[in-house]
Design a protein around this nucleic acid. Structure first.
Lengths: 205, 205
DNA sequence: TTCGGCATCAGCCTTTTGGTTGATCCTTGC
DNA sequence: GCAAGGATCAACCAAAAGGCTGATGCCGAA
């Protein structure tokens, strides 16, 4: 019997997953968590074979950080990411954090069950096109942004001006412009609006 | 016995809702639809008392249009909107389309069951702060944008420059700037980035 | 028909952004 | 220790964006 811990901030989704998973004989849900913190605690106590974890967990730590923390446990559960969109940045981030793969939320129940069984068996569970990229060692077409750049990007997406960003980050406008120039180059755009768009499209923020 | 039709493009969410709703004695799920079109067909055939409908339905018509079509049926089911965010524009749009209210997906199962029961009884089901605005006859605090302005806003959100927007809409940059000035005034912002942010926050686009 | 809202455009001016180049200081890895 | 990458800053220039005022044509409601 493969044991499963569910992590999703929506009770309804948890109920649905539980119904789907417990329907068969091979899998059993042994716990539910609404937040990443809770998931880590519960996983330590319950020692599930597989953790099925939503990428977005409302407030608190996100699915990627949760994955990293879960994989640091001993024994480490297989972590399967549940997501609505197969956005490059986040999914690949989760895989880099040690996830065994991801499932799209809009697939049929059987696919979810099958995915969990494969993850428990040590397989990678990925959509074909993404699997190809991962196996070829390519990260997403988007270069990595540094932490600071992501931070600036977030402020950008809130509509902040360079001056505002500079003030909040306690740096000069020159520094902000420098970060932005790097961000633009990496994202291959030439305006803040388009940077915001690309960042949102790719799940960078 | 109150009958319920579920409309959500995610099978897992439907399973969860079914489990939650069928758990009690008062409600019974009599059908599930993955799209708005399917929902309208099924509602006509099954005549549910309440339709629980996700606001976002992937491809095809959205929750608002679905609501409008459902309310045009005879007899019309009570339509309860399911959503992740209580974004003004969309939720109010759904209510204008005849929805009996909305439920946030992250509430507890009991709240959902209670909401369905109240909707079946003809009540409005709204979060307190929004209820206040609706009852006071106020639409959202945001002024209405014209169609053209929304159109410009959409291009804006894709990161287009004024020149690009002008070209695609076959007008001059002066016109685009004029529309933008109106948009900025109405949204109470002073930059395109912030306009994008506000528009996304409020579900305007 | 007159008025208001909407879409269209123009000119002028200031501010903000973006491009470029180059520099310093730190940390980390080899 | 040195190279590489990252964060920080500066100065200069060109382009884009934004603020303001005002004008025209169209349409529908009062």
């Amino acid at each position: 019997m493969t044991t499963v811990l569910l992590v999703d901030d929506h009770p309804v989704v948890r109920s649905g997953l539980r119904a789907v998973i417990d329907a068969g004989d091979a899998l059993r849900v042994i716990g539910e968590a609404a937040t990443g913190e809770e998931a880590i605690t519960l996983a330590g106590a319950l020692r599930p074979d597989v953790v099925l974890c939503d990428l977005r967990l409302g407030s608190g730590i996100d699915g990627i950080r949760t994955t990293a923390a879960l994989r640091a446990l001993e024994p480490a559960p297989a972590v399967l990411i549940l997501t609505t969109f197969d956005r490059d940045a986040e999914v690949l981030g989760a895989i880099e954090a040690g996830a065994a793969g991801y499932l799209l939320k809009d697939v049929d129940p059987e696919v979810i069950v099958e995915g969990i069984r494969r993850a428990a068996g040590g397989d990678m569970v990925l959509a074909p096109d993404l699997a190809a990229r991962v196996l070829k060692g390519m990260r997403s077409p988007l270069p990595r942004l540094t932490e600071r750049e992501i931070e600036v990007l977030r402020h950008l997406a809130r509509g902040s001006t360079n001056r505002e960003i500079a003030r909040t980050l306690f740096v000069t406008e020159a520094t902000v412009k420098s970060h932005l120039a790097h961000i633009f180059t990496k994202l291959d755009v030439d305006s803040r609006s388009r940077a915001i768009h690309v960042a949102q499209e790719t799940g960078l923020i």
